[in-house]
Protein backbone atom coordinates (compact mmCIF):
# COMPACT_ATOMS: atom_id res chain seq x y z
CA UNK A 1 0.00 0.00 0.00
CA UNK A 2 1.23 3.48 -0.81
CA UNK A 3 2.63 5.42 2.15
CA UNK A 4 0.61 8.59 2.83
CA UNK A 5 2.94 11.57 2.97
CA UNK A 6 2.08 15.19 3.62
CA UNK A 7 3.95 18.19 2.22
CA UNK A 8 3.27 21.37 4.21
CA UNK A 9 4.39 24.78 2.95
CA UNK A 10 2.61 28.06 2.27
CA UNK A 11 4.50 28.44 -0.99
CA UNK A 12 3.23 26.39 -3.92
CA UNK A 13 6.64 26.58 -5.50
CA UNK A 14 8.26 25.26 -2.38
CA UNK A 15 5.84 22.29 -2.20
CA UNK A 16 6.67 21.57 -5.82
CA UNK A 17 10.40 21.61 -5.02
CA UNK A 18 9.89 19.23 -2.08
CA UNK A 19 7.82 16.82 -4.17
CA UNK A 20 10.45 16.89 -6.92
CA UNK A 21 13.15 16.01 -4.39
CA UNK A 22 11.41 12.78 -3.32
CA UNK A 23 12.98 9.48 -4.43
CA UNK A 24 11.69 8.28 -7.80
CA UNK A 25 9.59 5.11 -7.78
CA UNK A 26 8.78 5.64 -4.10
CA UNK A 27 5.30 4.24 -3.52
CA UNK A 28 3.61 7.21 -1.88
CA UNK A 29 0.29 8.97 -1.87
CA UNK A 30 1.08 12.70 -1.71
CA UNK A 31 -1.11 15.14 0.20
CA UNK A 32 -0.46 18.87 0.43
CA UNK A 33 -1.31 21.59 2.94
CA UNK A 34 -0.52 25.30 2.84
CA UNK A 35 -0.66 26.01 6.57
CA UNK A 36 -0.44 24.22 9.89
CA UNK A 37 -4.17 24.02 10.42
CA UNK A 38 -4.76 22.19 7.14
CA UNK A 39 -1.81 19.96 7.93
CA UNK A 40 -3.21 18.91 11.31
CA UNK A 41 -6.61 18.13 9.81
CA UNK A 42 -4.98 15.81 7.25
CA UNK A 43 -2.75 14.27 9.92
CA UNK A 44 -5.81 13.46 12.02
CA UNK A 45 -7.42 11.81 9.00
CA UNK A 46 -4.41 9.47 8.85
CA UNK A 47 -3.04 11.03 5.67
CA UNK A 48 0.40 11.71 7.05
CA UNK A 49 2.71 8.86 7.87
CA UNK A 50 5.64 11.11 6.92
CA UNK A 51 5.38 14.90 7.05
CA UNK A 52 7.63 17.36 5.24
CA UNK A 53 7.03 20.49 7.29
CA UNK A 54 7.92 24.15 6.70
CA UNK A 55 8.30 26.34 9.80
CA UNK A 56 7.36 29.86 8.75
CA UNK A 57 3.71 29.79 7.70
CA UNK A 58 0.61 31.90 8.24
CA UNK A 59 -2.33 30.85 10.45
CA UNK A 60 -0.40 28.10 12.21
CA UNK A 61 3.37 27.71 11.94
CA UNK A 62 5.47 24.57 11.90
CA UNK A 63 6.43 24.78 15.58
CA UNK A 64 2.75 24.75 16.55
CA UNK A 65 2.10 21.77 14.28
CA UNK A 66 4.91 19.85 15.96
CA UNK A 67 3.58 20.75 19.41
CA UNK A 68 0.09 19.52 18.52
CA UNK A 69 1.35 16.30 16.96
CA UNK A 70 3.54 15.64 20.00
CA UNK A 71 0.57 16.21 22.31
CA UNK A 72 -1.53 13.83 20.27
CA UNK A 73 0.97 10.98 20.49
CA UNK A 74 3.40 11.66 17.62
CA UNK A 75 2.13 9.12 15.17
CA UNK A 76 4.15 10.47 12.24
CA UNK A 77 7.74 10.99 11.10
CA UNK A 78 8.28 14.71 10.72
CA UNK A 79 11.08 16.09 8.56
CA UNK A 80 11.35 19.85 8.90
CA UNK A 81 12.37 21.72 5.77
CA UNK A 82 13.06 25.31 6.61
CA UNK A 83 14.62 28.56 5.51
CA UNK A 84 14.92 29.46 9.18
CA UNK A 85 18.32 27.90 9.76
CA UNK A 86 19.12 29.25 13.23
CA UNK A 87 20.70 26.62 15.48
CA UNK A 88 17.96 27.31 18.03
CA UNK A 89 15.23 26.57 15.49
CA UNK A 90 16.96 23.27 14.75
CA UNK A 91 17.22 22.42 18.46
CA UNK A 92 13.57 23.27 19.05
CA UNK A 93 12.16 21.11 16.30
CA UNK A 94 14.28 18.16 17.45
CA UNK A 95 12.97 18.65 21.00
CA UNK A 96 9.47 18.65 19.58
CA UNK A 97 10.04 15.28 17.98
CA UNK A 98 11.10 16.01 14.39
CA UNK A 99 13.41 13.30 13.07
CA UNK A 100 15.41 15.68 10.88
CA UNK A 101 15.98 19.31 9.95
CA UNK A 102 16.80 20.06 6.33
CA UNK A 103 17.78 23.51 5.09
CA UNK A 104 16.13 25.13 2.13
CA UNK A 105 16.81 25.01 -0.76
CA UNK A 106 16.10 21.29 -0.45
CA UNK A 107 18.44 18.70 -1.95
CA UNK A 108 17.22 15.29 -3.12
CA UNK A 109 20.27 13.47 -1.74
CA UNK A 110 19.62 14.86 1.74
CA UNK A 111 16.00 13.69 1.64
CA UNK A 112 17.16 10.25 0.51
CA UNK A 113 19.72 10.11 3.30
CA UNK A 114 17.17 10.94 6.02
CA UNK A 115 14.61 8.47 4.68
CA UNK A 116 17.22 5.68 4.55
CA UNK A 117 18.60 6.55 7.97
CA UNK A 118 15.16 6.11 9.53
CA UNK A 119 14.24 3.02 7.54
CA UNK A 120 11.44 4.80 5.73
CA UNK A 121 12.30 3.55 2.27
Amino acid sequence: MATPILVVDDSGMSRKLVIKSLPVNWDVEIHQACNGQEALALYREGKAHIIFLDLTMPIMDGFEVLEAIKREGLNAFVIVISADVQPKAQERVKELGAIAFLKKPIKAEEVLHVLKEHGLL
Binding site: S14, S82, A83
Partner: peptide, 20 residues
Protein backbone atom coordinates in the same frame (compact mmCIF):
# COMPACT_ATOMS: atom_id res chain seq x y z
CA UNK B 1 5.90 36.68 -7.18
CA UNK B 2 5.51 33.16 -5.77
CA UNK B 3 9.06 32.28 -6.86
CA UNK B 4 10.39 35.54 -5.46
CA UNK B 5 8.58 34.92 -2.19
CA UNK B 6 10.32 31.57 -1.77
CA UNK B 7 13.68 33.06 -2.75
CA UNK B 8 13.21 35.87 -0.23
CA UNK B 9 12.09 33.36 2.38
CA UNK B 10 15.38 31.50 2.04
CA UNK B 11 17.40 34.74 1.97
CA UNK B 12 15.72 36.13 5.06
CA UNK B 13 16.31 32.85 6.85
CA UNK B 14 20.02 33.42 6.24
CA UNK B 15 19.71 37.06 7.36
CA UNK B 16 17.89 35.97 10.52
CA UNK B 17 20.59 33.40 11.22
CA UNK B 18 23.32 36.05 10.88
CA UNK B 19 21.44 38.37 13.20
CA UNK B 20 20.81 35.57 15.71
Amino acid sequence: IDALQEIVNIAMGQAGDSLA
